[in-house]
Computed example of a mutant assay.
Amino acid sequence: MGRAVAEYPLGIESLMLWQDLKTRTGRDTGFRRSGIVYAAFPGARLADTDGLMTADDGRAEPSLAASALAEAARDAGAVNLNNCAVRGLETKAGRVSAVGTAQGVIRCDGAILAAGAWSRLFCANLGIDLPQVRVRSSVLRTAPAPGGPDMALGNGRFGIRPRADGGYTITRRGRVPVQLTCDLLLQSSRFARGLVRNRREIAVTVDGSRMQDLRTPRRWQTDRPGPFEQDRVLDPDPQRRTLARAWRDVVRVFPALSGVPVVESWGGIIDVAPDGVPVIDEAPGLPGLVIATGFSGHGFGLGPGAGQMAAEIATGAATLIDPAPFRIAPVRTTQAGRTTSWPVHVPANAVTPGAENFLYRATIPLNWTPVRSAV
Score class of each variant (00 low, 15 high):
A68Y: 03
A68T: 15
L69C: 13
L69F: 04
A70C: 15
A70H: 15
E71A: 14
A72S: 04
A72P: 03
A73S: 08
A73D: 05
D75C: 06
D75I: 10
D75Y: 02
D75F: 02
D75E: 15
A76E: 15
G77T: 13
A78H: 11
A78W: 04
A78V: 07
V79D: 14
V79S: 15
V79H: 10
V79I: 09
N80I: 13
N80A: 14
L81A: 02
L81V: 06
N82V: 13
N82R: 13
N83M: 13
N83W: 00
C84I: 04
A85I: 00
V86K: 14
G88V: 12
G88D: 09
L89D: 12
E90M: 09
T91Y: 12
T91L: 09
T91D: 10
K92C: 00
K92D: 07
A93D: 07
A93G: 03
A93H: 07
A93T: 11
A93C: 00
G94I: 01
G94S: 04
G94A: 07
R95L: 04
R95T: 01
V96T: 08
S97Y: 04
S97K: 12
A98H: 12
V99W: 01
G100F: 06
G100H: 11
G100Q: 07
G100W: 06
T101P: 00
Q103I: 14
G104H: 15
V105P: 01
R107V: 11
D109K: 07
G110N: 10
G110V: 02
G110P: 05
A111R: 01
I112N: 13
L113N: 02
A115K: 00
A115T: 07
A117C: 08
A117Q: 06
W118G: 06
W118M: 14
S119F: 00
S119G: 00
R120L: 09
R120P: 11
L121S: 13
F122W: 06
F122I: 02
F122T: 06
C123H: 04
C123A: 08
C123Q: 02
C123T: 08
A124H: 06
A124V: 03
A124G: 01
A124Q: 07
N125T: 05
G127N: 14
L130Y: 05
L130M: 04
P131H: 00
Q132L: 15
Q132E: 02
V133Y: 05
V135C: 03
V135I: 08
R136D: 00
R136P: 03
S137D: 12
S137W: 05
S137M: 05
S137C: 07
S138H: 14
R141L: 15
T142H: 02
T142D: 09
A143P: 08
P144L: 12
P144Y: 10
P144Q: 14
P146R: 15
G147Y: 10
G147S: 10
G147R: 08
G148M: 06
P149G: 10
P149N: 14
D150I: 15
M151S: 14
M151H: 02
A152K: 12
A152H: 06
A152W: 10
A152S: 11
L153C: 05
G154Y: 13
N155C: 09
N155M: 04
G156R: 08
R157V: 08
R157T: 15
F158G: 01
